[in-house]
């Protein structure tokens, strides 16, 4: 049993971490909240005045916001769809006995360790470029016109890049979950004459439900904040075709210096992320027994 002495010591040991995170949460967030009620442009210092919720109505009625919200949902949804389905298929494959499994695992996981700016620029120039890219060469080789990915399908292109980066994460987690499946259960089903599909849908998939939920929630948290890939490839364009909420807030605050409206956008982003976070926290909380 912990003594009173060690309990006091324990409080002191937690204090720095708690206080720092508390400061990190409260100070900037309350500043954002405060700025979001001001008319505040960095180009006109000293002209700040209180305007209530005007920034919010300005930000939320801006057509760019609706475009950015749609793009954010498409980006998150598209990447989730590719990575979860791809991840399940890959995990099923990697779970089979084969030669050189360790090496294949390494190859599959590698994209996760590539920094976002590198992966975006490599995809943009060396693969998707309509003149010199590898895709252009392949389409020309089969006699088709090369497709200019980033100007004609900017959001889809970004979805492909981001999905490539996150597929390893989904695969790795689903594979981990799959390996904890009792193989006797599968064998018993096999002996009872269950086919491969029946085994997958009645045993494997239900076993994976939890892992899939975790993948979806954790990736959503990160995918809502995709930024570097957009910054170095399309700058959110053409127009607002590939602008997500994160990029829109960045553009309004640090490119147009409109701190007030940017802050309102930041708060909107926080609320969106919190909706997902609540579900994720519940999942993790259930699993944590102290």
């Amino acid at each position: 049993m912990a003594t009173a002495h060690s309990r006091t010591a324990a409080r002191f040991m937690i204090a720095p971490a708690v206080l720092l995170l508390l400061a990190w949460m409260i100070i900037p967030l309350s500043m954002t909240l405060y700025f979001s009620t001001l008319r505040y442009n960095l180009l006109m210092p000293g002209m700040e005045d209180f305007i209530g919720f005007d920034n919010y109505s300005y930000f939320l009625t801006d057509p760019a916001f609706f475009a950015a919200l749609t793009n954010t949902l498409l980006l998150v949804g598209g990447v989730l769809l590719i990575t979860v389905i791809g991840g399940i298929l890959l995990a099923l494959l990697l779970d089979q006995p084969m030669f050189g499994q360790g090496i294949v695992r390494i190859l599959v996981i590698a994209p996760f360790f590539v920094m976002p700016t590198v992966s975006a620029l490599v995809w943009k120039n060396m693969f998707m470029n309509p003149v010199n890219g590898l895709f252009a060469f392949l389409t020309k080789a089969v006699g088709l016109q090369p497709f200019d990915f980033l100007s004609h399908a900017p959001l889809t292109s970004i979805i492909i890049m981001v999905a490539w980066q996150w597929l390893p994460f989904a695969t790795l987690i689903l594979l981990t979950a799959m390996q904890s499946l009792d193989s006797e259960q599968i064998e018993a089903a096999e002996m009872d004459g269950a086919g491969a599909f029946a085994r997958f849908f009645h045993i494997v998939l239900p076993h994976l439900t939890r892992a899939i939920t975790v993948v979806v929630l954790i990736q959503t948290i990160f995918l809502l904040s995709v930024f570097a890939e957009i910054l170095v490839t399309t700058n959110g364009g053409p127009g607002t075709a590939s602008t997500n909420i994160t990029y829109l807030v960045y553009a309004q605050s640090l490119l147009q210096f409109d701190v007030g409206s940017g802050s309102a956008g930041g708060i909107v982003a926080v609320i969106l992320a919190n909706i997902v976070a609540i579900f994720l926290m519940r999942m993790i909380g259930k699993n944590l027994d102290i």
Partner: peptide
């Protein structure tokens, strides 16, 4: 448990929500 969960929740804060104050 509450402290741990709360710490985790700070990780869920989208960076763009605090971009301006941190920048300033």
């Amino acid at each position: 448990k509450d402290v741990l969960m709360w710490m985790l929740s700070t990780k869920m804060l989208p960076p763009v929500g605090v971009l301006i104050p941190i920048y300033l």
